[in-house]
């Protein structure tokens, strides 16, 4: 089933739709090579989180994939039965969520919350799962793994919880990790630490990462490829270096310009020009008209 030469992830013309037909993702295509970090960047409403949710099969109720293909490690996810699809996704992918507090069950200890998926989904023995968990906790610089494994989530700080979730995500060496704004709730110094950990582990395990963020600064540091989104549409798709040194689309340039930097010589507070937003909305409208024509020939 697995094709050794396949891309980690290949998304082709993905459309995600509300029950009333409104599209949240509009013909999104992107791909991810093994060991690559691709940033999905955009403002709220751009649909960047929706892509990760569609790939992991965790779209909110009522929202569904109306068209398009998702290939995970060369496997067409749409072609599978729901049960097989869930199993395939669980065995190859993991999620690092935005809010490390609600992602952990408050009434269970940390230890079993990390090891359970390893034994249940990956069929590991308890001993192997525990050894791997300890190894990973050490890798994310948690000095006292046994104490942490026996703690409840509320006994740990936000940065600590996020490191635990990173360890849990990387423990089975998944092929794909979706990181959904994993540092938005953290202080800058902790953010830097977390970004470094994700980068180190991802390079070590050769895991491909879809990194959802709204921060162009984070994009510049963590990713090799970037997909810039607006209104559920791909505005620009390019290697990170090109995005910052030679951005093609005006919206990409505007997003970079709006990102605050401590550099005093750069003119501050430049919002995305309203004319550009209006232009993008017009493009979306035209796109939707074509789409509805295509749907009803």
């Amino acid at each position: 089933m697995n094709n050794l030469h396949a891309k980690t992830l290949d998304i082709i013309n993905l459309n995600v739709t509300l029950p009333n037909g409104h599209r949240l993702l509009r013909d999104v295509s992107l791909s991810l090579e093994p060991g690559e970090v691709r940033a999905l960047v955009g403002e709220s409403g751009a649909g960047k989180s929706m892509i990760g949710k569609a790939v992991l099969g965790i779209l909110p109720t009522g929202i569904s994939i109306s068209q398009g293909e998702i290939l995970l490690e060369g496997t067409h996810l749409n072609a599978l039965t729901p049960a097989t699809r869930r199993k395939t996704i669980a065995q190859t992918s993991a999620l690092i969520p935005q809010d490390p507090l609600t992602a952990l069950n408050p009434v269970r200890k940390i230890g079993p919350q990390i090891t359970d998926p390893l034994t249940r989904i990956h069929g590991w023995t308890k001993a192997r799962a525990l050894a791997r968990t300890r190894e990973l906790l050490d890798r994310v610089h948690i000095r006292n793994p046994d104490r942490v494994l026996n703690s409840y989530p509320h006994e740990l700080s936000g940065g600590m919880r996020q490191r635990i979730l990173i360890a849990a995500a990387f423990a089975p060496s998944p092929r794909l990790i979706v990181a959904d704004e994993p540092t938005t709730a953290l202080d800058v110094t902790v953010q830097k630490e977390i970004l470094r950990l994700i980068r180190e582990l991802q390079q070590e395990t050769g895991t491909g990462v879809l990194f959802v963020t709204h921060d162009m600064g984070v994009v510049a540091k963590i990713s090799q490829k970037v997909t810039v989104l607006f209104g559920g549409r791909v505005v620009e798709d390019a290697p990170t270096r090109d995005i910052f040194e030679n951005p093609e689309h005006a919206y990409t340039r505007a997003l970079i310009a709006a990102t605050p930097t401590p550099n005093a010589s750069i003119e501050p507070f430049r919002p995305v020009p309203p004319a550009l937003i209006a232009e993008l909305h017009r493009e979306i409208q035209a796109d939707d008209d074509r789409f509805s024509k295509r749907a009803q020939p």
């Binding site: 800058v188 830097k192 980068r199 600064g217 910052f244 930097t261």
Partner: peptide, 12 residues
């Protein structure tokens, strides 16, 4: 620790 929106390979 501020991630500036520019390529900086030595940031980490």
């Amino acid at each position: 620790a501020i991630p500036r929106p520019e390529i900086d390979d030595s940031w980490f």
